[in-house]
Structures are given as C-alpha cells and as structure tokens.
C-alpha cells in the first residue's frame, strides 16, 4: 500500500500538508519564545497605593501644624537609624540576584529629568539628593534591559516587601535597607512627591527602573517601576 493510496483523497492530502506546516510553524514559534529572554517581571498593581507612614509624623499632619508634636519638646525627636553622608560605591539585592560595583553619579538633563546611566551594566545614584543612609530619599536607578538583553534592574519588578538591599558606601560602611513596597507608575503621571518628597526623618531608598510596554516610536518604556525601602541598619 503506497502513500498515494492511503492519502489518496485530496482533502486528506491537503489536511496532511496543513498539519505539517502548522507543526513546524507552531513548534518554531514556541522554541523562539522559550529561548529568547522573557519580558521583565512587573510588580502587582495594588502596591501603587502607598501604605501609611508608620511614624508619628502622620498624626501631626492630621492635627495641623499649630501644635508641635510632643516628641520634640523632650528627649528629642525619635529618628530611625541614620548614617553619616557617604556616596554609594556598590549595590547588592540578593533576592533578585543584583550585585553591581561602581555606582555612577546621575544628574538632570536640560528638561530637569533624571538621566539614566549610559552603561547598561551599572547602577547610578541621584548625586544632588541625599546619600543612601542619611535623611531623606536616596535614589538609585538602573536599566531594565539593553538593546540585546537584561540589564542590572531586569528583575526589580519581582522584588518583594521585606527583601534586603545593601549599599556599600565610600566610607567603607554598608547601609542595609528593607523593601516596603514595589510599584509601577506611568511616566506621564509620575508621583514626584511620593518618590522624592519628605520621608519624616527616615533614611529611605528608591530603586527605579523601567516597566510596562515598550514604545517603539520613542524607544522608551512607558512606565517606571519604583521600589521603596527604608534604612534598618
């Protein structure tokens, strides 16, 4: 019995040919999808809403500024852990496999926007702001990917609350931060006050990278992923 008799029917032949093509194309697509780098992880959307600050400052906000908080009258304000100013030199986030040496200084472009590191393999810090470990929000940014593959903050969107972030500093000390939350924001509606605003006397850290969809017309991602952390030691 030859193949031509077995598949003598035209519709049968056609179906056989279609089957082969579908198997080849479908299998090929799956192989390509599985071998090329996958899209970077994104944080769950509910974390975009900030949790209430756990310091006494929020109570003072509610009652108004006419009555100074009682804490300032005796014994001094209760600040969390605070370190002397010192520039960052290395960054480690064990839970997402980040370990990078040489943190570059970042400035603003002519539109007042924070420039990203030119090196896809390096993290950068906003040098006009606080250093990681002193009062206020220190800001470290890094790329999620280069044109060819993952970069330093590729897995930032997978960072979880409670994870540890260590920043080694110029003076030899290490600032240990604990992640409070990770959120994704549209760049068009970036929460400047939340990211760069007052931290109620705490030393805090912001880790920024890109997220969301990639806009091929601009060559940029449309969202930012921001991890919020505070100094714990």
């Amino acid at each position: 019995m030859s193949l031509s008799t077995k598949f003598g029917d035209r519709r049968g032949q056609l179906a056989a040919a279609v089957t082969v093509v579908l198997l080849l194309v479908g299998g090929g697509l799956m192989v390509r999808a599985l071998t090329s780098p996958s899209s970077p992880p994104q944080p769950p959307s509910e974390q975009a809403i900030p949790v209430a600050q756990q310091t006494s400052g929020s109570a003072a906000d509610a009652t108004g500024s006419s009555t100074p908080p009682a804490a300032t009258s005796q014994g001094g304000p209760t600040f969390g852990t605070i370190l002397e100013p010192s520039a960052p030199v290395a960054l480690a986030i064990p839970s997402i496999g980040v370990r990078t040496k040489g943190v570059v200084k970042l400035g603003l472009d002519k539109n007042g926007k924070l420039k990203a590191p030119t090196d896809f393999a390096k993290a950068g810090w906003y040098a006009a702001g606080p250093t990681p470990g002193e009062f206020g929000p220190a800001v470290i940014g890094a790329h999620v990917d280069s044109k060819s593959g993952p970069a330093v903050f590729y897995r930032l969107g997978a960072l979880k609350k409670g994870a540890e972030v260590s920043v080694t500093r110029e003076d030899g000390s290490t600032a240990h931060f604990t992640v409070d939350r990770v959120a994704r924001y549209s760049k068009d509606n970036f929460p400047t006050a939340t990211v760069y605003g007052d931290t109620k006397g705490r030393a805090e850290l912001r880790l920024i990278t890109c997220g969301g969809a990639f806009d091929h017309s601009t060559g940029h991602y449309v969202d930012n992923i921001v991890a919020f952390a505070h100094l714990t030691g």
Partner: peptide, 22 residues
C-alpha cells in the same frame, strides 16, 4: 526634584512579546 520618571531601558527584552509567541 527631578521632573517625571527615568528612561531606563532599551527594549531588548520587551520584543518579541514572548507570551504572545507562546
């Protein structure tokens, strides 16, 4: 404070849309 967000990606891992391909 810096205006807006940061441009921190070149899209190397965004395309092709692997979930779509799968």
């Amino acid at each position: 404070a810096p205006a807006g967000g940061m441009d921190t990606g070149a899209g190397g891992t965004s395309t092709p849309d692997n979930e779509g391909l799968l």
